[in-house]
């Protein structure tokens, strides 16, 4: 289970824009690297990441090998309603991760 951080204000005034920041701990192996004994390290990157608030999809991202290790993503949203902000991702090995934070719109 990958470790991740999701930062977002817990309370938001209606119509206000807030910044969402996500940091996923993942090596983002490019497949170009080799171990000390010469074996190639297979490519394994978080290829897709989705951010949802309730049932509403806010942002979907597809990453290649050009995204740094421990992928970081920040963006601005206007939460349409209170709910749980969920970020989910999948890597090439099929490992899935999820991190969530509640948002209250007042």
């Amino acid at each position: 289970m990958a470790i991740a951080r999701l930062q977002v204000p817990s309370t938001v005034r209606a119509g206000e824009a807030v910044e969402v920041r996500v940091l996923v701990q993942h090596p983002m192996e490019t497949g170009f690297r080799r171990e000390a004994d010469g074996r190639a390290v297979p490519m394994n990157v978080v290829h897709s990441l989705v951010c949802r608030l309730g049932a509403v999809e806010i942002l979907r991202a597809e990453f290649g090998t050009g995204v740094s290790a421990n992928p970081y993503l920040a963006f601005w949203i206007v939460p349409p309603a209170s709910g749980e902000l969920v970020v989910e991702w999948v890597d090439d090995a099929g490992a899935k991760g999820r991190v969530a934070a509640p948002i209250a719109v007042s």
Binding site: A17, V18, L53, V56, E57, I58, L59, R60, A61, E62, F63, G64, G66, V67, F75, W76, I77, V78, P79, P80
Partner: peptide
């Protein structure tokens, strides 16, 4: 990378 924005993006 590619990013796809939903309607809640500010």
């Amino acid at each position: 990378a590619a990013y796809h924005f939903g309607p809640a993006m500010a």
